[in-house]
């Protein structure tokens, strides 16, 4: 019953300070999972599955492996560059489409046709158009990451309080000032959510490109080399890399979520 009350309390106030008990329970949950993994692999239920303890040790030693660190850095660099360019591209376009209905109406059909194309389908094409492959990787990340940012910017601008915009206009501000002072700030929380969604897409694209090309440096390449190795140590490398990939995704999401809550506290309050 107390748990149920906890649930409703958290529902009302997502920013309530995290009680110690909760973190302890998180740790217990993860520890229980690791223990189960260790028991299952030691019992030999799945011959391919390395021990949890060995995997964690490999995970730790990868942090000192210059090859792996170089690959991780390559993937993250492409992801960050791509995400930054996508913001620079998609936010102005979204503002334009959101504030000028005529443009939105005429381009909607094109948008609706381009959006469902799975971004990874463009990998082979991009490799022909952009050389070296790092450029192809970044171009694809920009393409894929732009959609959630564009759509969220569009929704955010539509959500703008018309009274605020009208007020500014009647005080003699031009269209540019209205966008800069009203539309952009009030759409900012939506845009940020779009960026957070796009961030996870960037990692998927980066790893897919690396995986397809093979020769490129990056986590995807490291995974291929690890998985084509022989014997148990190959799987150990793959699992350890997966833990790193998951951890990176988790940290990126947590940081962006926290920044979102801190930056836009005024909005939810």
């Amino acid at each position: 019953m107390t748990a149920a009350i906890d649930g409703t309390r958290r529902e009302r106030d997502p920013l309530a300070r995290v009680p110690i008990g909760k973190i302890t329970r998180h740790v217990v949950g993860v520890a229980a999972f690791l223990l189960l993994w260790e028991v299952v692999s030691r019992a030999g239920l799945f011959t391919w599955l390395p021990n949890a303890s060995d995997s964690l040790i490999r995970f730790a030693t990868l942090a000192a492996d210059p090859v792996f660190l170089g690959d991780l850095a390559a993937t993250l660099t492409a992801a960050i560059l791509g995400l930054g360019l996508a913001v620079l591209l998609a936010v102005p376009v979204g503002l334009l489409l959101g504030t000028v209905p005529v443009v939105e109406e005429t381009t909607r059909a094109i948008v609706e046709f381009l959006r469902p194309i799975p971004s990874v389908a463009l990998i082979p094409l991009a490799l022909f158009f952009f050389t070296p492959e790092i450029n192809a990787k970044i171009a694809l990340i920009v393409y894929a990451a732009s959609w959630p940012i564009l759509i969220n910017t569009l929704y955010g601008v539509r959500d703008v309080d018309p009274v605020a915009a009208e007020t500014l206009r009647s005080f003699g501000f031009g269209a540019g000032a209205v966008v800069w002072r009203v539309a952009l700030p009030s759409a900012a929380p939506f845009i940020f959510t779009g960026v957070r969604l796009a961030a996870s897409v960037t990692l998927i694209l980066a790893i897919s490109v690396e995986y397809f090309v093979g020769g490129a440096s990056g986590v995807g390449r490291f995974l291929i080399e690890a998985s084509t190795g022989i014997g148990e140590s190959a799987m150990l490398d793959v699992i350890a890399t997966l833990i790193w990939a998951g951890l990176v995704g988790l940290v990126v999401n947590a940081v962006l979520l926290r920044a979102e809550r801190r930056l836009f506290r005024w909005r939810s309050a």
Partner: peptide, 25 residues
């Protein structure tokens, strides 16, 4: 809830294409 949340969040954070080598094995 408190026990499984970190595990589910982690599972979601793993970029799915990275799982391909595992499934290939």
């Amino acid at each position: 809830a408190d026990y499984i949340d970190p595990l589910v969040e982690f599972g979601r954070a793993v970029p799915p294409p990275a799982m391909l080598p595992v499934f290939l094995v």
